[in-house]
Design a protein around this nucleic acid. Structure first.
Lengths: 166, 166
DNA sequence: ACACGTTATATAACGTGTTATGTTAATATG
DNA sequence: CATATTAACATAACACGTTATATAACGTGT
């Protein structure tokens, strides 16, 4: 068995470990969503949520708000447009600016998530983190252990079940 | 100005935020390393460190130890071989297995990092996290604030300077 | 009116991760 | 021994992020 060097090097690999744990949580959340019939990739939700909250935004505004690159937003919007989730919004005077907004379909998908799914995801994550305390490295250790013992999609599904039972 | 929805949704976007902060720290560490003449991408160091600690490992052993996909390891090793950092290791009886090990060049690069660079990176990260306390979401908020006020490469460079001065 | 600098977005190219698949070697089974 | 199954790794294809660049639109100064 190979030693796990990331645990031996203290704070040195903190960035790497944060990234790994984050990706793992995103993947497990996506697995749960897929089981609920929602196939959008994990990274798209900050964008959809922001559009839902703000109404119409341009590529650049989204990129700045989300802290991602502009071509990445362009690409995501191209896909979401093809999926019928977003559409061009009424433009102002400046023809360079291309505001977009959610379609009715997109809005109803986001609203369904906000009403039916996110509360359980949030509760499952919060509950998993509730007993965590101390330095961030220790908290990461513990989150990894928790996910090893019960992945996030299973935790959320259990939350849904409690709701159905209660 | 667009509202930052990730901060409003509590624990829901924890995975996404962990990933973002982790990537940011990795990018800033890579910037520091580049300033020291080391151009290996951030993701390669766990692999190099593991080879340095273990001697020779196969693709599958590395993939399992690092928690990444086997083709990803294959690709990384292809590049590292081209860079002269790793080479094939003496094989056993099983002709399917292709163990690799660090070259002398690779080992000396890793050792230079371990001796001269990682201690400062680790100290900078540890110092940045030293005053953090409480739930992980709050710690992430604080790390982001710390990185906003002084990026990691600048923190490490400062650590190097203190060493030079002291 | 025109020249030039800046802004907004699309596109190109690249890097880095994954899953799926193909090939070869080794092992298990009847 | 022959065949089926599994293991190990390379390769193919794709997804998703980035930086660099191209193009169009806009603003400013002369």
């Amino acid at each position: 068995m190979v030693r796990d060097f990331t645990k031996e090097l203290g704070y040195l690999p903190l960035g790497s470990r944060l990234k790994r744990v984050g990706e793992r949580m995103q993947a497990e959340t996506a697995r749960f969503l897929a089981s609920e019939g929602i196939e959008q990739p994990p990274g798209i939700w900050p964008l959809l949520q922001t559009l839902h909250g703000e109404g119409a935004l341009t590529v650049g505004e989204l990129a700045t708000a989300l802290g991602v690159s502009q071509p990445g937003v362009t690409r995501s919007l191209r896909q979401l447009t093809a999926d019928g989730m977003v559409k061009p919004a009424p433009a102002g005077e400046d023809q360079r600016r291309k505001p977009v907004m959610l379609t009715d379909t997109g809005a109803s998908v986001v609203e369904r998530c906000m009403r039916d799914l996110w509360p359980h995801v949030e509760a499952a994550v919060r509950e998993m983190c509730a007993s965590l305390d101390g330095p961030i490295l220790q908290q990461l250790d513990r989150i990894e252990e928790e996910l090893d013992s019960l992945p996030l999609d299973r935790r959320v599904a259990r939350k849904m079940q409690e709701r159905d039972d209660g």
